[in-house]
Nucleic acid binder design. Structure first.
Length: 429
RNA sequence: GGAGGGAUGGCAGAGUGGUAAUGCAGCGGGUUGCUAACCCGUGUACCGGAAACGGUACCGGGGGUUCGAAUCCCCCUCCCUCCGCCA
């Protein structure tokens, strides 16, 4: 949500920001509504001032046993004007709100211009593509052949875009989540949180998924929504609150299931675990002082990268161009992991600084030291990491010629010491 | 599913028609050699104003009654307690 005062002060900068996202100028329309709304409000307030004063006189007159008929008549005569201005202020207010809540965040100055993901800019890479002296396969072939990845069973239960994992791969899911949570809580200063995955509408409004992107979400028959990411619940923990400046930054992490309808992705990534209606993810959220959020974005991205480094996976970091930026983000780094089976980099984490865009929607504020009043906090979120996609990366990068998978060293303590995932027959599992 | 109770500022908590007590915390200032203590100020949002300052709204949300509503009436949302069922 945008600050009207900011648009009032710098309408051109606002429109330029919208233009960088490929959107039509909106400032003029907004400011016209804003002018009319303020005029109605000012007129209304003057009438209310008069009404309050005269009403007071009525009270005084009645106490003294005097006749108040003239005064009462005067207030009566104000009524139509009050009703009319009240109504027009409310309508203008709603119109203005309706425009503002549909506009995305302004991109940060250092975000590159562009239209599609092809215009994203590579920032850095880590590691190298692994060499294989055999024909590499994709994760679903490996997983299915091992007998631990079952799309048929999932289809019978739930249809397309679901998976059933068994045995060592089921455990790998749990191991990955535990490893990531341990890293973020023990070394990166995040506190571990468990949240609901069913939420009310207002939580999704706060983070910006609603009202615009309802078609991407699942909703229950009794009006709960399934979260598409724990960003929703973790960030909304700050909603409607006023924090002490000393309580910032707040770093939180949670492992949750995520649910996405993938409405716009029909026919895309239909094979394998890459794009599912349900997947688990370890999410990081940070609530910061506005002056700190830029630095926090770098830090958070580093926390996500650390997971990949320790797993020994080759990746690159790209900064999203204006055209690829999400609705609430002012700047986003995507981390793309190398998938040898696909022979391409795929997104495994997305870390965004939302500035005060979400905070304004959910009224998340803090009290600045030595200053009057309150300010909106800044919010950031990042995957650390998407667990299913991490599993894909491990399967493809650690595959062996015999169809087994080597367990990365850091995960072995979480896998009961297991060094290699081989087929059922061979391990007897 | 049944029956009750409730929602007031950061927190606690009074207020049954005359325009939001009080306490605590935090912040700013003052007194004292320091600490403690004490004193003064300080709710949030918005509008007008160069500023000083002035004004309006807000007692869960939305309507209504009234000269005037936290207070009375109607609708809605949320929270809590007990009973039943249940992992």
């Amino acid at each position: 949500m945008h600050d009207v005062r900011l648009i009032r002060e710098t309408p051109d900068a606002f429109d330029q920001g919208m233009a960088r996202r490929g959107l039509e100028p909106a400032a003029e329309r907004i400011l016209e509504l804003d002018r009319r709304r303020r005029a109605a409000q000012t007129a209304l307030q003057e009438m209310l001032t008069r009404r309050n004063a005269v009403s007071k006189q009525v009270g005084a007159a009645k106490r003294n046993g005097e006749d108040a008929a003239d005064l009462i008549a005067e207030v009566q005569s104000l009524k139509d004007g009050i009703t009319a201005n009240e109504a027009s202020e409310k309508v203008l207010d709603r119109d203005l709100e309706a425009i503002l809540e549909g506009l995305p965040n302004l991109p940060a100055a250092d975000v590159p211009d562009g239209n599609t993901e092809d215009d994203n800019r590579e920032v850095r890479t880590h590691g190298d593509k692994p060499d294989f002296d055999f024909a590499v396969r994709e994760h679903f072939d490996i997983g299915e052949d091992l007998g631990y990845m079952d799309f048929g069973a999932a289809a019978r239960l739930s249809g397309a875009r679901f998976v059933v994992l068994r045995g060592a791969l089921a455990r790998l899911e749990r191991a990955l989540a535990a490893f990531m949570l341990d890293l973020h809580t023990q070394e990166h200063g995040f506190s571990e949180i468990v949240t609901p995955v069913l939420v009310r509408e207002n939580a999704l409004y706060g983070t910006g998924q609603l009202p615009k992107f309802a078609e991407d979400l699942y909703k229950t028959a009794d009006d709960y929504w399934l979260i598409p990411t724990a960003e929703v619940t973790l960030t909304n923990l700050a909603a409607d609150g006023i924090l002490d400046e000393a309580e910032l930054p707040q770093r939180m992490t949670a492992w949750t299931q995520c649910f996405r309808s993938e409405a716009g992705a029909a026919g895309k990534d239909t094979r394998g675990m890459l794009r599912q209606h349900q997947f688990s993810k370890v999410e990081m959220v940070c609530v910061t002082h506005p002056d700190q959020s830029d630095a926090e974005l770098e830090r958070m991205t580093g926390c996500a990268e650390e997971v990949l480094k320790r797993l020994g996976l080759h990746y690159r970091v790209v900064v999203l161009c204006t055209g690829d930026l999400g609705f609430g983000a002012r700047k986003t780094y995507d981390i793309e992991v190398w998938l040898p089976g696909q022979g391409t980099y795929r997104e495994i984490s997305s870390c965004s600084n939302c500035g005060d865009f979400q905070a304004r929607r959910m009224k998340a504020r803090f009290r600045p030291r030595g200053e009057k009043g309150t300010r909106f906090v800044n919010t950031l979120n990042g995957s650390g990491l998407a667990v299913g996609r991490t599993m894909i990366a491990i399967i493809e990068n650690y595959q062996n010629a015999d169809g087994s998978i080597t367990v990365p060293e850091v995960l072995r303590p979480y896998m009961g010491g297991l060094e290699r995932i081989a087929s059922k027959e061979r391990t007897g599992q």
